[in-house]
Protein backbone atom coordinates (compact mmCIF):
# COMPACT_ATOMS: atom_id res chain seq x y z
CA UNK A 1 0.00 0.00 0.00
CA UNK A 2 1.33 3.42 -0.89
CA UNK A 3 1.68 5.77 2.03
CA UNK A 4 1.11 9.43 1.62
CA UNK A 5 4.11 11.38 2.77
CA UNK A 6 3.49 12.14 6.40
CA UNK A 7 3.30 15.76 7.25
CA UNK A 8 4.62 16.83 10.63
CA UNK A 9 1.28 18.15 12.00
CA UNK A 10 2.95 19.51 15.14
CA UNK A 11 -0.38 20.41 16.80
CA UNK A 12 -1.78 16.90 16.48
CA UNK A 13 -0.38 15.27 19.62
CA UNK A 14 -0.95 18.19 22.02
CA UNK A 15 -4.33 18.79 20.40
CA UNK A 16 -5.51 15.25 21.13
CA UNK A 17 -4.25 15.35 24.70
CA UNK A 18 -5.80 18.75 25.38
CA UNK A 19 -9.05 17.78 23.71
CA UNK A 20 -9.11 14.51 25.63
CA UNK A 21 -8.73 16.32 28.93
CA UNK A 22 -11.54 18.81 28.25
CA UNK A 23 -14.27 16.42 29.50
CA UNK A 24 -12.37 15.95 32.76
CA UNK A 25 -12.11 19.72 33.19
CA UNK A 26 -15.81 20.13 32.43
CA UNK A 27 -16.58 17.43 34.99
CA UNK A 28 -14.57 19.23 37.68
CA UNK A 29 -16.22 22.57 36.85
CA UNK A 30 -19.69 20.99 36.84
CA UNK A 31 -18.96 19.37 40.20
CA UNK A 32 -17.87 22.68 41.68
CA UNK A 33 -20.97 24.45 40.39
CA UNK A 34 -23.26 21.68 41.58
CA UNK A 35 -24.31 21.00 37.99
CA UNK A 36 -24.00 17.22 38.20
CA UNK A 37 -27.55 16.73 39.44
CA UNK A 38 -28.88 15.17 42.60
CA UNK A 39 -26.40 12.27 42.63
CA UNK A 40 -23.12 13.81 41.44
CA UNK A 41 -20.84 10.85 42.24
CA UNK A 42 -23.06 8.50 40.29
CA UNK A 43 -23.12 10.89 37.33
CA UNK A 44 -19.33 11.29 37.41
CA UNK A 45 -18.85 7.52 37.56
CA UNK A 46 -21.04 7.04 34.50
CA UNK A 47 -19.38 9.85 32.54
CA UNK A 48 -15.80 8.75 33.21
CA UNK A 49 -16.67 5.14 32.40
CA UNK A 50 -18.26 6.12 29.13
CA UNK A 51 -15.31 8.37 28.25
CA UNK A 52 -12.86 5.56 28.95
CA UNK A 53 -14.76 3.20 26.65
CA UNK A 54 -15.14 5.77 23.85
CA UNK A 55 -11.42 6.62 23.99
CA UNK A 56 -10.53 2.93 24.01
CA UNK A 57 -12.64 2.44 20.90
CA UNK A 58 -11.00 5.47 19.24
CA UNK A 59 -7.56 4.07 20.01
CA UNK A 60 -8.62 0.75 18.48
CA UNK A 61 -9.83 2.59 15.39
CA UNK A 62 -6.42 4.10 14.63
CA UNK A 63 -4.83 1.10 12.96
CA UNK A 64 -7.86 0.13 10.82
CA UNK A 65 -8.22 3.77 9.82
CA UNK A 66 -4.60 3.89 8.70
CA UNK A 67 -5.01 0.62 6.84
CA UNK A 68 -8.13 1.70 5.01
CA UNK A 69 -7.11 5.26 4.16
CA UNK A 70 -3.35 5.15 3.99
CA UNK A 71 -3.19 8.13 6.35
CA UNK A 72 -0.44 7.92 8.91
CA UNK A 73 -1.66 10.45 11.42
CA UNK A 74 -4.05 8.04 13.18
CA UNK A 75 -1.09 5.90 14.23
CA UNK A 76 0.56 8.93 15.76
CA UNK A 77 -2.32 9.69 18.12
CA UNK A 78 -2.91 6.11 19.20
CA UNK A 79 -0.63 6.29 22.22
CA UNK A 80 -2.24 9.51 23.46
CA UNK A 81 -5.72 7.98 23.08
CA UNK A 82 -4.58 4.86 24.94
CA UNK A 83 -3.17 6.86 27.82
CA UNK A 84 -6.31 9.02 27.99
CA UNK A 85 -8.34 5.80 28.14
CA UNK A 86 -6.30 4.67 31.11
CA UNK A 87 -6.61 8.08 32.75
CA UNK A 88 -10.42 7.98 32.59
CA UNK A 89 -10.54 4.33 33.63
CA UNK A 90 -8.49 5.14 36.74
CA UNK A 91 -10.71 8.15 37.44
CA UNK A 92 -13.77 5.92 37.03
CA UNK A 93 -12.32 3.44 39.53
CA UNK A 94 -11.32 6.16 42.01
CA UNK A 95 -14.84 7.62 41.91
CA UNK A 96 -16.24 4.15 42.50
CA UNK A 97 -13.92 3.85 45.52
CA UNK A 98 -15.08 7.26 46.72
CA UNK A 99 -18.69 6.13 46.26
CA UNK A 100 -18.00 3.32 48.69
CA UNK A 101 -16.01 5.45 51.12
CA UNK A 102 -12.76 3.65 50.18
CA UNK A 103 -13.95 0.60 52.16
CA UNK A 104 -11.71 -2.31 51.10
CA UNK A 105 -14.17 -5.01 52.26
CA UNK A 106 -16.95 -3.63 50.06
CA UNK A 107 -14.70 -3.34 47.02
CA UNK A 108 -13.29 -6.83 47.53
CA UNK A 109 -16.78 -8.30 47.79
CA UNK A 110 -17.83 -6.46 44.63
CA UNK A 111 -14.78 -7.56 42.64
CA UNK A 112 -15.01 -11.19 43.78
CA UNK A 113 -18.75 -11.75 43.78
CA UNK A 114 -20.26 -9.49 41.14
CA UNK A 115 -19.27 -10.34 37.56
CA UNK A 116 -20.29 -6.83 36.48
CA UNK A 117 -17.57 -5.37 38.73
CA UNK A 118 -15.11 -8.24 38.15
CA UNK A 119 -14.88 -7.64 34.41
CA UNK A 120 -14.53 -3.88 34.78
CA UNK A 121 -11.80 -4.30 37.35
CA UNK A 122 -10.05 -6.87 35.16
CA UNK A 123 -10.09 -4.47 32.21
CA UNK A 124 -8.45 -1.80 34.35
CA UNK A 125 -5.78 -4.21 35.63
CA UNK A 126 -5.01 -5.35 32.06
CA UNK A 127 -4.52 -1.76 30.97
CA UNK A 128 -1.96 -1.03 33.68
CA UNK A 129 1.01 -2.79 32.00
CA UNK A 130 -0.01 -1.20 28.70
CA UNK A 131 0.08 2.28 30.21
CA UNK A 132 3.44 1.53 31.86
CA UNK A 133 4.98 0.36 28.58
CA UNK A 134 3.55 3.05 26.35
CA UNK A 135 6.86 4.88 25.83
CA UNK A 136 9.42 4.37 23.09
CA UNK A 137 11.91 3.09 25.64
CA UNK A 138 9.66 0.18 26.53
CA UNK A 139 9.45 -0.92 22.91
CA UNK A 140 13.23 -0.96 22.77
CA UNK A 141 13.60 -2.81 26.06
CA UNK A 142 11.00 -5.46 25.32
CA UNK A 143 11.70 -5.81 21.62
CA UNK A 144 8.98 -4.91 19.16
CA UNK A 145 7.46 -8.39 18.89
CA UNK A 146 7.11 -8.93 22.61
CA UNK A 147 5.85 -5.36 23.08
CA UNK A 148 3.28 -5.92 20.36
CA UNK A 149 2.13 -9.18 21.87
CA UNK A 150 1.77 -7.53 25.28
CA UNK A 151 -0.27 -4.73 23.79
CA UNK A 152 -2.67 -7.19 22.22
CA UNK A 153 -4.12 -7.30 25.75
CA UNK A 154 -6.00 -4.19 24.71
CA UNK A 155 -8.37 -6.41 22.71
CA UNK A 156 -9.21 -8.34 25.88
CA UNK A 157 -9.62 -5.08 27.81
CA UNK A 158 -11.98 -3.77 25.13
CA UNK A 159 -14.07 -6.94 25.25
CA UNK A 160 -14.27 -6.77 29.05
CA UNK A 161 -15.03 -3.06 28.91
CA UNK A 162 -17.99 -3.62 26.60
CA UNK A 163 -19.22 -6.48 28.80
CA UNK A 164 -18.93 -4.24 31.87
CA UNK A 165 -20.98 -1.58 30.06
CA UNK A 166 -23.54 -4.19 28.99
CA UNK A 167 -23.97 -5.64 32.47
CA UNK A 168 -24.03 -2.19 34.04
CA UNK A 169 -27.11 -1.13 32.10
CA UNK A 170 -30.42 -1.81 33.80
CA UNK A 171 -32.66 -2.15 30.82
CA UNK A 172 -31.96 -0.19 27.62
CA UNK A 173 -29.06 -2.06 26.01
CA UNK A 174 -28.84 0.13 22.89
CA UNK A 175 -25.69 2.07 23.92
CA UNK A 176 -23.66 -1.02 24.91
CA UNK A 177 -24.92 -2.76 21.77
CA UNK A 178 -23.57 0.08 19.64
CA UNK A 179 -20.23 -0.13 21.48
CA UNK A 180 -20.12 -3.90 20.96
CA UNK A 181 -20.86 -3.59 17.23
CA UNK A 182 -18.20 -0.92 16.71
CA UNK A 183 -15.60 -3.01 18.55
CA UNK A 184 -16.54 -6.08 16.50
CA UNK A 185 -16.22 -4.18 13.23
CA UNK A 186 -12.79 -2.90 14.30
CA UNK A 187 -11.72 -6.43 15.24
CA UNK A 188 -13.03 -7.76 11.93
CA UNK A 189 -11.02 -5.24 9.92
CA UNK A 190 -7.85 -6.33 11.70
CA UNK A 191 -8.64 -10.01 11.28
CA UNK A 192 -9.31 -9.68 7.55
CA UNK A 193 -6.15 -7.69 7.12
CA UNK A 194 -3.94 -10.13 9.02
CA UNK A 195 -5.41 -13.06 7.03
CA UNK A 196 -4.59 -11.22 3.81
CA UNK A 197 -1.10 -10.48 5.04
CA UNK A 198 -0.52 -14.15 5.72
CA UNK A 199 -2.02 -15.37 2.44
Amino acid sequence: MTRRPSRPLPWLGPGVVMGGLVPAAVLVLDAQMGALGANPIQRAILQTGLLALVLLILSLACTPLRTLTGWTWPARIRKALGLLTFFYAVLHFLLYLLDHGFTPAVVLEDVLERPFVTVGFAALVLMLPLALTSGRGAVRRLGFQRWQRLHQLVYVAAGLGVLHFWWGVKKDHTPPLIAALVVMVLFAVRLIRSRRARA
Partner: peptide, 19 residues
Protein backbone atom coordinates in the same frame (compact mmCIF):
# COMPACT_ATOMS: atom_id res chain seq x y z
CA UNK B 1 -30.10 -9.69 49.81
CA UNK B 2 -27.76 -8.12 47.25
CA UNK B 3 -28.75 -7.17 43.76
CA UNK B 4 -26.71 -9.31 41.30
CA UNK B 5 -24.68 -6.25 40.36
CA UNK B 6 -24.34 -4.38 43.64
CA UNK B 7 -24.68 -4.78 47.37
CA UNK B 8 -27.86 -3.50 49.02
CA UNK B 9 -26.14 -3.10 52.39
CA UNK B 10 -25.69 0.66 52.00
CA UNK B 11 -27.34 3.55 50.22
CA UNK B 12 -26.56 7.10 49.23
CA UNK B 13 -29.06 9.52 50.70
CA UNK B 14 -29.33 12.17 48.01
CA UNK B 15 -27.35 15.22 49.14
CA UNK B 16 -24.92 13.23 51.29
CA UNK B 17 -21.42 12.17 50.34
CA UNK B 18 -21.03 9.15 52.58
CA UNK B 19 -23.22 6.13 52.17
Amino acid sequence: VPHPRWSQATERRIGELRR
